[in-house]
Simulated scan of single mutants.
Amino acid sequence: MTTAPRIEPFTPPADPAQLADLRARLRATRWPDAPDGAGWSLGTDADYLRGLVTYWAEEFDWAADLAAQARLPRFTADVGGRDVRFVHVRAAEGSRGALPLLLAHGWPDSSWRYRKVVPLLTDPGAHGGDPADAFDVVVPDMPGYGWSPAPRDRLLSSIDVAALYAELMGALGYDRFGTAGGDIGSHVSRYLALDHPDRVVAVHRTDGGVPVWAGDLAELAAEEREWFAAAAAWGATEGAYAAMHRTRPQTAAFGLTDSPVGLAAWIIEKLRAWSDCGGDVERSYAKDEILALITEYWVTGTIGSSMRMYHANGAIDPVQLSRRVEVPSGFALFPGDLLRPPRAWLERTTNLVHVSEPPRGGHFAAFEEPELYAAELREFFRPYRPAAG
């Protein structure tokens, strides 16, 4: 007889001593030199980071952010012998036909990515939407990200995390559900659909992942081959971080775990480069929003474990990468995202039923443009709701 997983409330802890240590480290930073006028051309801009660090040390209110997080009910569950922390918010009272929806984040983020959209999805009637579009929303922190402890026995791949999420949804009483994700979360949602097609009603993604094709490139359409070439060029100029994560994540983890400024530089450069911000990161995120994410990584000590997932995913059998998703699939291709796939590739690799191109937003669209993202999910999942069946 299988025992149902333990599910209990979880509150992110506050540790004043840890915060005092963080501020002392920030004030004692040993700064590297930078060429005059380098800006962001060599990586994170030194002048911008100095200003952000001063604000972090002297003004950022971590306690206020924890209080804001507490407004979203969090829980912890023993799933497959692993402690998974997650947000779980049921649809607003009176909603009919609410669809359970699992949202899967990527790197370098956590459930932070979906903070703004949870209220829009669970109570659309209070935010200008149709109450009939309400969801029961589940947003886990992947093991080794955010508040979920890092696995110590072995590295978990996207396939492993998808299996954990399927078990979690079952423990919550959701036999059938939708899933949506971006970045690594896009891969996790894909494997949920591939390995649990009897439970996933539809899958929504904001990217098609890094292109992989085992056959002859001549078999692909011209637009697909162009996309492959663009992906290779992007990897050569922008992919050094991923190569480090995939091959030697533990080496980088020592410095990033010990230095909050190093950690901030590693994350902030990606927030700026991958967002639809026109080069001004604070056009997409307020300082407090940026620092909420970075401080979460600092206090949980999860930058190393988050990077190690790239190593695990790099070991996935190529056969898995070429499987076609037969569950109804939809994509929102935001203009500021990375490696936007052509329609021909999406049709080749999924049972494509929906593609949209929102006017604004980037890699972290759920955080950058929560209203657009929420509207996209409401529209896509409408035909798959229990009441519609």
Rank of each mutant, 00 (worst) to 15 (best):
M1V: 03
P5H: 03
E8H: 13
T11I: 06
T11S: 14
P13W: 12
P16M: 10
A17P: 08
Q18Y: 01
L26E: 04
P32A: 13
P35I: 01
D36Q: 12
G37K: 11
S41V: 06
D45A: 06
L49I: 03
G51P: 08
L52C: 07
L52G: 02
L52M: 12
T54D: 15
E58M: 12
E58Y: 09
E59K: 11
R71V: 11
L72F: 13
F75M: 06
T76D: 10
A77W: 06
V79E: 02
H88Q: 15
H88N: 09
V89P: 08
R90V: 02
R90E: 15
E93T: 15
E93W: 08
G94N: 12
L99Y: 04
L101Q: 03
L101D: 01
W107M: 11
D109A: 15
S110R: 10
S111W: 03
W112Y: 14
K116P: 02
V117I: 15
L120K: 03
L120R: 11
H127S: 06
D133T: 03
D133A: 08
A134C: 13
M142F: 11
Y145C: 07
P149Q: 09
A150T: 01
L155H: 03
S157V: 01
V161L: 02
A162K: 01
Y174L: 07
F177R: 05
A180F: 09
H187Y: 15
A193P: 10
P197S: 14
R199N: 09
V201Y: 05
H204S: 13
R205G: 05
R205I: 11
V210E: 02
P211W: 09
L217W: 11
E219P: 04
R225V: 07
W227L: 05
A229K: 14
A232F: 07
G235L: 10
G239E: 06
R246N: 13
T247W: 08
D258I: 07
S259L: 06
P260A: 13
L263T: 06
R272T: 00
R272P: 04
C277Y: 04
G279S: 04
S284D: 04
Y285D: 01
A286K: 07
D288R: 06
E289M: 07
T300S: 03
G304F: 10
S306T: 02
N313S: 07
V325T: 01
G330C: 00
F331E: 00
A332H: 00
F334E: 01
D337R: 04
L338W: 00
P342C: 11
R343C: 01
W345E: 04
L346N: 00
R348T: 01
L352A: 00
H354M: 04
V355K: 04
P359M: 05
P359F: 03
F367S: 06
L372G: 14
Y373E: 10
L377M: 14
F381G: 08
Y384A: 07
A388M: 14
G389T: 13
